[in-house]
């Protein structure tokens, strides 16, 4: 392959590569709260807060991009604390519904905010995001989650997820851990929102709808939530899939939109039914299967 055709390939797929990183970060933000058994569906709202704040700061202040990103990461985390205090008392489906409610209120607030152009949103946001920044952010998030996993906090989170009353009996401050993970997830979402805004040149409230949260959840579940890198695998798989499907739909003559929707739904259903630990558990499953077969053969 010559270097110019490599360059063409890069030009064609660089936005896919960028979105794999962004969606990976968003999937991690859902996973972070989920890691102590809490399903928060307010992630799109945190993402919106990060995106708007960073875009506004870029328009109106001369601060370096790194400072804007830091603010866009911290502010959603701060907002998530007063939200989490009452809401985290709720469990399971109730928590999910309460956070959906919060997410919609935030979205409608931005739709009606004249200062940010209402439903049209902000356009011509200066492009500041490079692909390496997205992957640096993703790498940092993965590193943080990896460090948490083997630590005292990691065991505490696992205990809370498995049996919260038992964990509390053992002296684990469950409320504080849950709040911390909600805030961390919100920070990831805010950072992803800011990076996306400065990559796509725009901030539009319709981007932060319930559908977007469902996408994030789907990435996490398809990838698998039993290991911390699973959500990233899911995001990469489902973000790259439309590119493959576009080729296929051109040949088969189906409209790409519905086909993409259909395949997304079918993949999700298949994973939930047949691969409950997600596609990131696939290599281990195959290895186990092979070993079982070898042992059966030997015996």
């Amino acid at each position: 392959m010559t270097s110019s055709s490599l360059q063409d390939l890069w030009l064609t797929y660089q936005s896919t590569v960028a979105f794999i990183g962004l969606n990976g970060l968003l999937a991690l933000s859902v996973y972070t709260t989920l890691s102590c058994g809490q399903l928060s569906l307010a992630q799109a709202a945190f993402m919106a807060i990060g995106a708007y704040v960073s875009a506004i700061l870029t328009f109106h202040s001369g601060a370096p991009f790194a400072v804007n990103l830091a603010v866009a990461t911290l502010l959603p985390a701060l907002v998530s604390v007063p939200l989490g205090l009452p809401v985290l008392r709720l469990k399971g489906v109730f928590l999910a519904i309460a956070t959906i409610g919060f997410g919609e209120v935030v979205r409608i607030f931005f739709v009606n905010l004249d200062y940010t152009n209402g439903a049209l949103g902000l356009t011509a946001v200066p492009q500041r995001t490079s692909i390496w920044m997205i992957y640096a952010a993703l790498g940092t998030a993965l590193f943080v989650l990896w460090r948490i996993r083997g630590s005292r906090a990691g065991y505490a989170l696992e205990a809370i997820r498995e049996d919260e009353p038992a964990a509390r009996t053992m002296g684990i401050d469950a409320a504080r851990y849950k709040l911390a993970m909600l805030a961390l997830g919100a920070a990831f979402a805010g950072l992803a929102g800011a990076l996306e805004a400065h990559y796509t040149y725009m901030v539009s409230p319709s981007t932060y709808s319930f559908t977007r949260v469902v996408d994030m959840l789907v990435y996490a579940v398809v990838g698998g939530t039993s290991v911390f890198y699973g959500p990233v695998v899911g995001a990469a798989f489902l973000t790259a899939l439309p590119e493959v499907l576009r080729e296929i739909s051109a040949r088969v003559g189906l409209a790409p939109g519905p086909l993409r929707l259909f395949v997304n739904g079918a993949v999700l259903l298949a994973v939930i039914l047949f691969l409950p630990e997600g596609i990131s558990s696939l290599p281990r499953r195959i290895r186990d299967r092979l070993r079982a077969r070898r042992e059966a053969h030997a015996a």
Partner: peptide, 29 residues
């Protein structure tokens, strides 16, 4: 198919989202 699984609450939520997506795709098609 999910009944009796320990996480059937969230799993059911997600499998029904999957089915909704498939139905919507069929209608759009």
């Amino acid at each position: 198919p999910l009944r009796g699984r320990s996480d059937s609450n969230i799993a059911g939520l997600i499998s029904s989202i999957a089915l909704a997506t498939i139905l919507e795709a069929a209608v759009v098609q």
